[in-house]
């Protein structure tokens, strides 16, 4: 469904991605782990063309493109196949929850308003916000905003949804409600590529875990392989740091 090959990206002299290959099949839930600064956000942004890669190929279903040279039309058509959930929610400040969710349908895809609102309401119901349609982002808690962010991506019915640390800007007591929604849509068969530090999510719903460090994929495998039996020293070190109890299972 999504295949990317040899993605390179530098900011000035700082080489952030050093040749990333990745493939995701329909229904996959892939979790990317890695220390801060290892290039996870940049990778997601390159896939969605929010950042222009220096080099790299991608194929989305039938469509092949060059991550460095793709034209405006190609970029826009790829973006319509991808959903993106931002770390800081990034809702449209001047739109209500429902408008946030429907804008990509009414404006981006020229869908009639009634139809879009029907879809939008369903998406908001799914994330447990059936009583918040007409609220503006500023009137919502962080957890509610992020759930609108997820509904916004879900409503577009994309082939894949990319999540960039969707819970790391949230107060601890709000993380659960967002993770709950993510698990729910994962179980419904949504294809997801998720950057997160929430190990419970990775262990419960991921079918593949990727560990990134300093711009390369160090190791990937099933959650069981990565968590119980990591092969690379760098992976072990990372897990020791992030899972204090991990030391006991070695």
């Amino acid at each position: 469904m999504l295949r990317i090959k040899n993605v390179h990206k530098s900011f000035g002299k700082n080489e952030v991605l050093k040749g990333i290959d990745l493939s995701i099949d329909k229904g996959d839930v892939v979790v990317i782990l890695g220390a801060s600064g290892s290039g996870k956000t940049t990778l997601l942004r390159c896939i969605n063309f929010l950042e222009k890669a220096d080099q790299g190929k991608a194929s989305f279903g039938e469509v092949d493109l060059d991550l460095h040279q793709a034209g405006k039309k190609e970029i826009q058509s790829v973006r319509k196949k991808l959903g993106f959930v931002f770390q800081n929610y990034n809702l449209f400040h001047n739109k209500t929850a429902l408008e946030n969710v429907t804008l990509g349908l009414t404006v981006g895809r020229k869908m009639p308003r009634e139809m879009a609102e029907e879809i939008g309401r369903k998406a908001l119901n799914k994330v447990g916000l059936s009583d918040r349609y007409d609220y503006y982002p500023q009137q919502l808690s962080g957890g509610q905003q992020q759930r609108v962010g997820i509904a916004r991506a879900v409503a577009l019915n994309p082939d894949i949804i990319l999540f960039d640390e969707p819970t790391s800007a949230l107060d601890p007591e709000l993380i659960g409600e967002v993770l709950g929604v993510m698990k729910k849509i994962a179980r419904e068969g949504t294809t997801m590529l998720v950057v997160t530090h929430e190990m419970s999510f990775a262990q419960d719903v991921a079918n593949r875990v990727i560990f990134m460090d300093q711009g390369v994929i160090v190791e990937e495998g099933s959650p069981r392989e990565i968590f119980s039996n990591p092969k690379e020293e760098r992976t072990k070190q990372f897990l020791r740091r992030i899972l204090p109890e991990y030391t006991y299972t070695i």
């Binding site: 973006r79 931002f86 990034n90 449209f92 400040h93 804008l103 981006g108 991506a153």
Partner: peptide
């Protein structure tokens, strides 16, 4: 600038 990126992410020109 992030508002622009959010708009791009839902497929707006």
């Amino acid at each position: 600038r992030e508002q622009l990126e959010a708009a791009y992410s839902v497929g707006l020109s």
